[in-house]
Design a protein around this nucleic acid. Structure first.
Lengths: 340, 340
DNA sequence: GCGATAATTTAAAACGGTTTGGCAAAACAC
DNA sequence: GTGTTTTGCCAAACCGTTTTAAATTATCGC
C-alpha cells in the first residue's frame, strides 16, 4: 500500500500522514494517534527506498571487513546489530582484500561517494591513517574503533590498551618475572603501538632492560602464537612469562609450552587479551588463563550508539571514549620457577 | 552530479545516458562508449537510492545473525562479501535474539515486508522450518544454507553432513573403535540430524549397537565440548573415540582428555568437523586433528552466486547444491589402545 | 462578533533516477 | 524513388516518499 492510498482511506492528505508517522509537531495528537493505529491495522509501511531518496539519508552504516584473522569481527558486528536492530538503520558490510593495501582506501572512497551509507566505522587504525584523512576530507561521518595520532579530528571508541598491558606486565614483574615475552598484533596499528608502550613502560619503571628479541608482531592466529612462543622458548635463558594479544595467540602459546614439556602456570606464565567470546573462554582453559578483558560485543553496541549520536549532530570532538580494561588473574600466572 | 546535468554536458537525453550505462541494446556502441568514458572522467554515478526506488529493487540481500557461538559467521560473511563486492549488491545484517524463538520469525517477516532486501539467506534450518514456509508464502526469494525436509520448494546449498560423518565414523570403526562418542550440534537442526544419521548408519553397517549415552547435542563451544567429553570419559568403559561437530568442540575434547591424563591419538581418537578458519587450524593442533573439512568461506561465496542466480530468474527447483566433504586424517586418530 | 494569531492540514514541488511509447533518420527491399 | 523496417534517440510519465509554502480552520483577546 502506498502513502497515497493509505492517506485516502484515512481521509487525510499524504503530507499529514507522513508528518504524523514521523512525529512532527505540526499534527494534532488525536490525528497522530489515529494514523498510528490505522497504519498498524492496515499494515502500511513507508517504502524505504522512497524515504531514502527523499531524505537523502542512506539509512545504513558501513563496516569494512578484513579478510584474515577476524574472529572478533562477528562479536563486534553482533553488538552493532543488536543496538541498531531497534533503529531503522542497516549495517552494510564490505569486504577488503588485505593483500592490496591500495584497495582499502579505494573501497572507503567508493563507500563514501556511493551514498550507500551515512557513516562508516574504521577498524584497527594506524597512527597516521590514510582512511581517516580521506573520510574527513570527503566529509563522511565516521567512528574509529581504536584511535589515531593523525592531525584530523575523529570520533573514536578505544580500550585502554596501554594501561591494560602495563598492568599485565607490571603484575608479571611483581610476581618476579624478568624475562617477559610479548606477542603483539600487527605492526603499525595504533593498538599494537599502545600495547608496546604499556609493555616497555612497565619494564622501564622497574629498570628491566627492553630486549627486542622477546617481542613479536603479527596476526592473531593460533599458528603465529605457536611459532613465536616456540622460538622464544628456545632461547636461553628462555622467557618465563608471556603477554599475548589474543585468545588465539594464547592457544598457540599453550600449545608451544606443552610441546616443550613446560607447564603453564608454573614454568611459564601467560596473560592474554580476551575479547570475550561465547565459544572460547579464558576461564575454561587449562590452566585457566589470566587475561586483560574487554567485551568486543559491548564495544560494537556502544559504537552503534556513538555513530547515531554523530549522525544526530553531536560534534566529533566530543565523541571520544576510552574504556578501562579489566585484569583478571587466574591460574596461568604464577611466580617464575626458582631455577629461572 | 545528477543524470540531468551529466546528460546535458554530453548533449544527450537522460534516457539515452541511462540506457547506455545500463547496457541496453537500443543505444549505439559509439554512444555507449562515449558515455562510459565521460562518466568516469566526470565522476558521474547514479544515485543508488533513486535507482532503487525506480527499479523497485533493494540492491541488498539479508543475512540474519544469531547471537551465540557464531564463530563461523564471519567466515561465511567474508565469502559472501567477497563475491558480492563486485556486484552492486549490499549485505544487510540483522541480529536475532536466540532466546526468543518467536522473535526470529517476526524478524524474517519484517525483513521481507520492509522491502530492504531482494533475498535472504536462511541458516541452520530445521526439518520443518517455519522461516522457510514464511518466506515462501511471502514470495521473498531465499537461499537456505543447509536443507530442510519441509514440503515447500526452496533453493539450498548444503554440505554432505551425513556422508562426512558416516565416513568419519566408519573410519574409526575400521581402526578398531567400538565405543565412539558423538558431540553434535544443536538438537533439531537438519545438519545435526544428518550427522546423527551418518553416525548411526555407520554403526549399524558394522553391527555396533547405538548407545544414546554416547551422544550429546549443543552449541559449538569449547565449554560444551569439554563438559560432554568429560562426562563421556568418566563412563566405564569409556569411549575410545570422538566424532565432534566443530573445532571449538574439539578444543574442549582435547582439554577434557588431557585433564584426565589421556593421550589423544593413542588412548582417545578424535575427528572433528573443520569449517576452515584462518586463525585456528586443525593441522596445527597437537596432536594434529583429523577432520571432515569444508570451507565456510567458499560456501559463503557460492551462496552469493546462487542468490544472484535466483534473482536473475533461475527457478528455485534447480538451485540445489550438495557439497562433498573431505576427510583428512592426521595424528588424532589411531587404533584404540589394546586394553580398551 | 470581529480581526489577529495560532494550530492544522494540504497542494505541489522536490528527490534522482528508469521505463514506456513515440518519432525522426538511416537502412533496406523492390 | 517509394514503402517498410530498423536503428538511435527523446519527452514525459512514473517510482513513493518528504518538505516547502500556502490555505484552511480553530482559538483568543477584547
Amino acid at each position: 500500500m502506498k502513502l497515497r492510498e493509505f492517506a485516502q482511506q484515512l481521509g487525510l492528505s499524504p503530507t499529514t500522514v507522513s508528518r504524523a508517522l514521523s512525529g512532527y509537531p505540526e499534527v494534532s495528537e488525536k490525528t497522530r494517534k489515529r494514523v498510528a493505529e490505522e497504519a498498524s491495522r492496515l499494515g502500511y509501511r513507508p517504502n524505504i527506498n522512497a524515504v531514502r531518496l527523499a531524505t537523502g539519508r542512506a539509512g545504513a552504516i558501513g563496516v569494512v571487513m578484513g579478510r584474515s584473522g577476524e574472529f572478533h569481527f562477528s562479536e563486534f558486528m553482533g553488538g552493532l546489530a543488536e543496538r541498531l536492530g531497534t533503529e531503522d538503520i542497516d549495517i552494510l558490510v564490505s569486504p577488503i582484500d588485505d593483500k592490496d593495501p591500495k584497495g582499502e582506501i579505494q573501497l572507503y572512497s567508493r563507500l563514501a561517494v556511493s551514498g550507500r551509507v551515512d557513516a562508516v566505522i574504521v577498524h584497527s587504525p594506524e597512527p597516521n591513517d590514510e582512511r581517516i584523512a580521506l573520510l574527513h576530507k570527503l566529509g563522511m561521518p565516521f567512528l574509529v574503533h581504536g584511535r589515531s595520532d593523525i592531525d584530523v579530528p575523529h570520533a573514536w571508541l578505544d580500550i585502554d590498551n596501554e594501561g591494560a598491558i602495563r598492568r599485565a606486565t607490571s603484575h608479571l614483574i611483581d610476581l618476579g618475572h624478568r624475562r617477559i615475552a610479548m606477542i603483539n598484533g600487527r605492526k603499525g596499528r595504533t593498538f599494537s603501538l599502545h600495547r608496546d608502550k604499556g609493555y616497555r613502560d612497565a619494564l622501564q619503571a622497574r629498570g628491566i632492560p627492553f630486549d627486542p628479541r622477546l617481542v613479536a608482531h603479527g596476526n592473531f592466529t593460533d599458528e603465529l602464537g605457536f611459532r613465536f612462543a616456540r622460538s622464544f622458548l628456545e632461547q636461553t635463558p628462555r622467557p618465563t612469562a608471556f603477554v599475548a594479544g589474543s585468545m588465539m595467540t594464547a592457544l598457540g602459546i599453550y600449545r608451544a609450552a606443552r610441546s616443550m614439556g613446560l607447564e603453564i602456570g608454573r614454568e611459564v606464565s601467560v596473560i592474554a587479551h580476551d575479547d570475550v567470546f561465547p565459544y572460547l573462554t579464558a576461564e575454561n582453559m587449562v590452566p585457566s588463563l589470566s587475561a586483560t578483558r574487554s567485551s568486543m560485543r559491548a564495544a560494537g553496541a556502544r559504537s552503534a550508539d556513538l555513530v547515531l549520536q554523530l549522525l544526530s549532530g553531536r560534534p566529533t570532538e566530543e565523541v571520544h571514549e576510552l574504556w578501562p580494561v579489566e585484569l583478571i588473574l587466574r591460574e596461568s600466572t604464577a611466580p617464575p620457577p626458582e631455577d629461572a
